[in-house]
Write a protein that binds this DNA or RNA. Structure first.
Length: 949
RNA sequence: GCCGGGAUGGCGGAAUAGGUAGACGCGCAGGACUUAAAAUCCUGUGAUCCGUAAAAGGUCGUGCGGGUUCGAUUCCCGCUCCCGGUACCA
């Protein structure tokens, strides 16, 4: 092991240890109940063709440091990695090239693993999972089946097997069943239930199941040929690809996530996530408490239900507004208004979601000609249509109170509708609405003179007694669309008989993705699976042709790591009971309303059905910030382009100077990998981009330099291939070593903060690593190195340096504040260097505390120190002993009124200076301290500080 | 609009139960070693004033304006700007 290197050779050392770890299965984890468990999880990546860039490992490095630290602290750490390997890009690539997505996905995964191993992560690769692996998606399909076999019992507030629902039906019909179900479910008695045919009964249970088929208005993306979930649509276009999305009614599999809305909301209070992330989920769930009120349509049978959070403003209602898509619109439209209404409805249909959003300020609407009766005061209220009312929220109808709601006020003012004051505290209503709840009601019938608090129960009682409404809680959260008209996803394990969906036999799981000749929809517009020939019951039954969405596999994958090769269950009970939940989850905040919400939903479901022990899957969650790219630019003189002219590039610093007045230049992206500290490697540039550095007829470019260098401009942008700002971690590892990459990414700034990648500072970390090496080795004149570690006893000063670092490292890692730990190491090594400390006792501990950050060099030095190779991860984290820090601490008596009242411990580790003594004996200071009986006073020159009473 | 987070040297960023602001790194400047370069090491580096052989010293300084305090980057009130999320949600 004693390779004596003059300089630290990261290539050799890293290869040695990575091989060692692999051969010895150093990071293989067993379910070991003798040790406390700790589960550290990274959000697994989608293996894209572009490979990893330096932004990806940021969170992985942090979680790896934490895992290694926890191992040192005696925990049995589960730290796995896998791949979210179903997804659109592979499929689109398949459409273009005809290659099976499995092939390209496999290739990408191999590349990812290679890149990840390069960085020296301590993953247990024997537990790797892939969502596209039939052995994995067998269980995704199984969970889908369990959801299908379950309903949500609101009374017990949990999911239950469908059999318990059927038992209830048999006893009392569905009148006493309190469960979320299809809106159009008829009520029936036990007798009626028994009178139904088996098929009718089955059909009835379909309305209650946690996954169900429904006609839903979905986000249809024609370019991608599939539907998208709400969280996959950003600004009216698809998140992937940016294609337009339109609203379309389609028959889809749905997930009844709304059944869990309240539990998803309240569960947030128990978990250690960032406030912003919890807030995002709260907003997404969007709970609002209000009331539903039924309005009778004048001269007609039908009624219109509205939802309001301000039922107290009911006497201020002067009109009602329906969404243009509201089902009663045709009936309500009077002959005189027909033309105007139809024009409006058609216009609304044509307007894309995006236009509607962009155009918030325009007031538009149309009168239907009909009226409803306000049930509280019997007044006639005109019914209008307007596209500011959304069909998908509440009941698709709102009661408009222009005095209390700004939007209603604007509408009323625009169309000349009346505005009625309802509270005496409302301000002047001529210029705007006033949404106050203060004051007492006026013009308000039965609540006149009451306050808001008093009025609400009166109104709710009135609604309930007259059967015209009730208190109601609404959620913004919608049931999740679960169907995708794609090929590269999990097949839904369902077939159809007489138009009704049935689960396939469980013994036929996994229902494997069949081969198809093309990855496009069929000529008849069916999804790609319509092309499949080798279904097991082809011809016998009709199969479900849609596949599951990307979030299906990722909504439970953390359980698979616990027992990844199990064929009998998604994970054994023993494994799940031991590993339970994820203690630390690290990943990007972009999954706030997607993956992280769906995962919590499925977890709660699995908990309800007794398959997992914890209500929440991710106890603590840390979002790493995105690493942006830092693009470099060269500036080409516009006039120098063309045949017969040498292209001229001007250094950035000269652009503004008077030597180059108003120079017309074009800024061009230049590959950041040939730029160092903004200085361009001109030769590399010439070689890699002859298209830019030569004229069309081959005249080489000229470079106008400053101080002999070509300086590039820079800008922060998203890291992307087209901007030539992608930095591959492999290149950094090759040049500086994995340990430097790891330390540097942590050093860059707070983990959670978004920050640009900038290689400029990396040399500092590189120097630190080599300096660390030189604590052990000294270079000799003949370019070999001398081992300089001694067995001498450490001095107090050296012990102090060590223990200061132990404490700092421990505190920082627990707080995941790695950006301040790296400087602490640097200070430590600097101080030991200036103390000329090469003592084994000190270095051994230092190696251990540094090992989570820089595992390769520490493994090397650990072995070289004479310890068993590869055992640094098993050695305990050194214990911090305060005595080494406070050895010089000094107690100083404080006299108050001539008596010693207390002693002072100095936080500074030295005796007080003359100035400080003088301050302490100062009469006013003594007087000021009088009566405060300080326990501790920290003294700094000229001031007294920090009186701890 | 609403919700969440932020603003500190030339740059990335340290420091908040209130207590010597600018740790550490980059960059820059000077020096040592070297035939030279690389590498390495040492010194200096917020602004400004006064001043010296060298020093010492003063004033200002954490986005802006106030407040509390012996003392504020930190706490309170009022703004400005930036980043992230979200939106005709009744």
């Amino acid at each position: 092991m004693n390779r004596r290197m003059a300089e630290y050779n990261h290539r050799e050392v890293e290869q040695t240890w990575q091989r060692f770890w692999e051969e010895n299965q150093t990071y293989k984890t067993e379910t070991d109940s003798r040790k406390p468990k700790y589960y550290v999880l990274d959000m697994f990546p989608y293996p894209s063709g572009a490979g990893l860039h330096v932004g990806h490992p940021l969170g992985y490095i942090a979680s790896d440091i934490f895992s290694r630290y926890k191992r040192l602290k005696g925990f049995n750490v589960l730290h796995p990695m896998g791949f979210d390997s179903f997804g659109l890009p592979a499929e689109q690539y398949a459409i273009q090239t005809g290659q099976h997505p499995a092939v390209t996905t496999e290739r990408n995964i191999i590349r990812y693993i290679e890149q990840l191993k390069n960085i020296g992560f301590s993953y247990d690769w024997s537990r790797e999972v892939r969502t596209s692996d039939p052995g994995f998606y067998k269980w995704t399909q199984w969970i889908f089946m369990e959801l299908f076999r379950s309903w949500y019992n609101n009374e017990a507030d949990r999911a239950e097997p469908i059999e318990t629902l059927v038992a209830k039906f048999e006893q009392n019909g569905n009148q006493s069943v309190n469960a979320p179900c299809d809106d159009n479910t008829p009520t029936f008695t036990a007798e009626q239930w028994r009178a139904m045919s088996e098929q009718e009964q089955y059909d009835m249970t379909l309305k209650y199941r946690l996954t169900y088929v429904a006609d839903a208005v979905v986000n249809w993306c024609p370019a991608l040929g599939t539907v998208l979930a709400n969280d996959e649509v950003k600004d009216g276009v698809s998140e992937r690809g940016g294609y337009p999305v339109e609203q379309k009614k389609m028959r889809q599999w749905m997930m009844r996530i709304t059944a869990y809305a309240d539990r998803l909301l309240h569960g947030l209070d128990q978990i250690d996530w960032s406030e912003s992330l919890k807030e995002q989920q709260r907003n997404w769930i969007g709970k609002s408490v209000g009331a539903e009120v039924t309005f009778q349509i004048e001269n007609r049978e039908e009624t219109i239900k509205v939802y309001t959070t301000r039922v107290d403003t009911i006497y201020g209602v002067t009109f009602m507004v329906l969404a243009p898509e509201h089902e009663l619109v045709p009936e309500l439209t009077t002959p005189e208004q027909r033309e105007a209404v139809e024009a409006y409805v058609n216009a609304a249909k044509l307007r894309s979601e995006r236009d509607r959003m962009a155009d918030v300020k325009t007031v538009s609407g149309v009168f239907t000609g009909s009226y409803v009766i306000n049930p509280f005061n019997g007044e006639k209220v005109p019914i209008w249509l307007a596209d500011y009312v959304l069909a998908g929220y509440g009941t698709g109808a709102v009661m408009a109170v222009p005095s209390g709601d700004q939007r209603d006020w604007t509408f009323a003012t625009h169309f000349g509708l009346p505005i009625v004051r309802i509270l005496d505290a409302q301000k002047d209503l001529d210029t705007q609405a006033d949404a106050t709840k203060d004051g007492r009601y006026v013009n308000s019938g039965i609540i006149n003179g009451l306050t808001y608090q008093e009025a609400i129960p009166v109104l709710i009682r009135f609604l309930e007694e007259n059967g015209i409404g009730k208190a109601k809680t609404n959620y913004r959260l919608r049931d999740a669309v679960f169907s995708r008209q794609r090929y590269w996803g999990e097949p839904v394990p369902v077939y159809y008989k007489d138009g009704l969906p049935y689960l396939i036999d469980e013994t036929d799981l996994p229902l494997e993705l069949p081969a198809v000749d093309k990855y496009l929809p069929t000529e008849t517009g069916e999804p790609p699976l319509g092309r499949a020939e080798d279904w097991k019951y082809k011809g016998e039954y009709e199969y479900e042709l849609s596949t599951m969405p990307g979030w299906a596999g990722s909504s439970w994958y953390w359980y698979r790591y616990m027992d990844p090769h199990n064929n009998q269950a998604f994970a054994s009970k023993a494994a799940v009971d031991y590993w339970r939940d994820v203690d630390l989850y690290v990943g990007g905040s972009e999954h706030a309303t997607g993956h992280l919400l769906y995962s919590r939903f499925w977890n709660k479901f699995l908990k309800d059905r007794g398959y997992v022990p914890e209500e929440e899957p991710f106890k603590k969650l840390v979002n790493q910030g995105m690493i942006q790219g830092r693009s470099n630019f060269v500036y080409r003189v516009k006039e120098s382009v063309g045949e017969g002219k040498a292209p001229v590039f001007v250094s950035a610093g000269l652009l503004e100077s008077s030597d180059w007045p108003t120079m017309a230049v074009t800024a061009l992206h230049v590959d950041v990998n040939i730029v160092s500290n903004d200085v361009l490697d001109i030769e590399a540039f010439r070689k890699s981009r002859p298209d830019l550095t030569e004229s069309p007829d081959g005249i080489p470019a000229e470079f106008i330099l400053e101080d002999g260098k070509y300086i590039c401009g820079a800008e922060i942008e998203k890291m992307s291939k087209s901007k030539y700002n992608v930095v591959n971690p492999d290149d950094i590892v090759e040049r500086y070593g994995a340990d430097v990459l790891r330390l540097y990414e942590m050093f860059l700034g707070p983990l959670e903060q978004a920050k640009p990648w900038n290689t400029n500072g990396i040399d500092g970390v590189y120097r630190f690593i080599r300096k660390f090496w030189r604590l052990f080795y000294e270079e000799k004149a003949d370019n070999t190195s001398k081992w300089i570690v001694t067995d001498d006893a450490p001095t107090p000063a050296e012990l102090k340096v060590l223990h200061k670092t132990i404490k700092k490292t421990q505190d920082d890692i627990e707080a995941m504040s790695f950006n301040t730990t790296v400087p602490a190491f640097m200070v430590c090594v600097n101080e030991l260097t200036s103390l000329k400390c090469s003592k084994r006792a000190i270095l051994q501990d230092l190696v251990v505390i540094l090992s989570p950050f820089a595992p390769h060099i520490t493994e090397e030095l650990w072995a070289v120190l004479g310890n068993e190779p590869g055992t640094v991860t098993k050695t305990g984290f050194p214990a911090f002993e305060e005595k080494y820090l406070v050895e010089d601490a000094f107690e100083y008596p404080i006299q108050i009124n001539g008596k010693v009242r207390t002693t002072i411990s100095f936080a500074i580790d030295r005796a007080p200076t003359e100035i400080e003594k003088e301050v302490l004996s100062n009469e006013t200071v003594q007087k000021w301290l009088e009566g405060k009986a300080p326990k501790k006073v920290v003294v700094v020159p000229k001031r007294i500080v920090n009186v701890v009473v």
